[in-house]
């Protein structure tokens, strides 16, 4: 490299570095530190070692929240991810494919908050769209967001509505990158559609599938807005996931230390999952050097 001023080259990085360092990295370490304290946010924090973490495993609310989070992850892999793959495969070589695609694309453009409010109306017991439609067939009103465990599944349906399009777009991208010769060769050799999918399409989709799964899993662990807007995690904390429990413990119940420990657990899980796709990214990245 030519001899640019070494000191100046750091100046270009400084604003980005300072913002991230002061507002994200230092707080992150402080948060880990707080997780070892009992602290209500007002009085002096009291060091209590690992007891916040031990308490987690005895806390019925946390365990419910943890199980719900796992449910979200499993459901996400089945409906928004596998459903997205299915729709992407179906959309290939079909008339009006672009029209269908753009419909599934619409929810991507609106926020989780807006989505939650729209679906609150869909699910509303008295005036809701679903109950009105069911009423036409003489079916009684259903409390979509109140009955346990139906409320979590109702939230998951909304989540699917919002997320399927993203995964569909990614899988379509993967599908178009498969060379036509490959599929043609297999068809000439007499493969049917299913064999084609299993032996040709799917193996070629594997790299993108890994990333989509890792991203979708990490995102479903982090879900907050939708649940907060639609049920506030209720009734009786039955639809909480880890991110919602963290918020409630911290800012509603003022258990700052305990809330911090939940966020640390959540982070460990999310970072472990992200490592799956980060590793491949960094490996590739190092090639530039």
């Amino acid at each position: 490299m030519k001899n640019y001023n070494k000191f100046v080259s750091y100046l270009y990085i400084l604003p980005a570095f300072l913002l991230v360092f002061l507002l994200l990295l230092i707080p992150m370490f402080q948060n880990i530190y707080y997780s070892f304290f009992q602290w209500d946010g007002i009085s002096q924090p009291i060091f209590n070692g690992l007891s916040n973490y031990i308490q987690l495993f005895k806390d019925a609310n946390f365990l419910t929240s943890f199980l719900n989070t796992i449910l979200w992850v499993v459901f996400t892999l089945i409906f928004p991810v596998f459903g997205g793959l299915l729709v992407a495969v179906f959309l290939r070589g079909i008339k009006f494919g672009n029209f269908f695609k753009s419909i599934f694309y619409i929810p991507i453009t609106i926020s989780f908050v807006a989505t939650g409010i729209i679906w609150n109306y869909m699910y509303s017991r008295q005036i809701g769209v679903f109950n009105t439609i069911l009423g036409l067939f003489g079916i009684d009103k259903i409390s979509w967001l109140v009955n346990v465990p139906l409320n979590t599944f109702s939230l998951l349906l909304t989540w699917t509505w919002q997320q399927l399009g993203v995964n569909m777009v990614l899988f379509l991208m993967g599908l178009t990158s498969i060379p036509v010769e490959q599929t043609e060769a297999a068809t000439i050799e007499g493969a049917n559609r299913w064999q084609l999918f299993i032996h040709v399409t799917f193996p070629m989709l594997r790299p993108i599938t890994t990333v989509v799964i890792a991203m979708a899993t990490a995102n479903s662990f982090k879900v907050f807005d939708l649940i907060y807007v639609m049920t506030r995690g209720g009734p009786y904390r039955s639809s909480e996931t880890l991110a919602v429990t963290m918020f409630r413990e911290t800012f509603t119940m003022s258990n700052m230390g305990y809330g911090a420990s939940i966020s640390v657990v959540l982070s460990i899980i999310v970072v472990a999952i992200s490592a799956v796709y980060l590793r491949s990214m960094l490996k590739k990245d190092l090639l530039y050097y």
Partner: peptide
Amino acid sequence: LFPFQMYLIP
């Protein structure tokens, strides 16, 4: 990398 919950309290 980290979920936003990591930054909220500090």
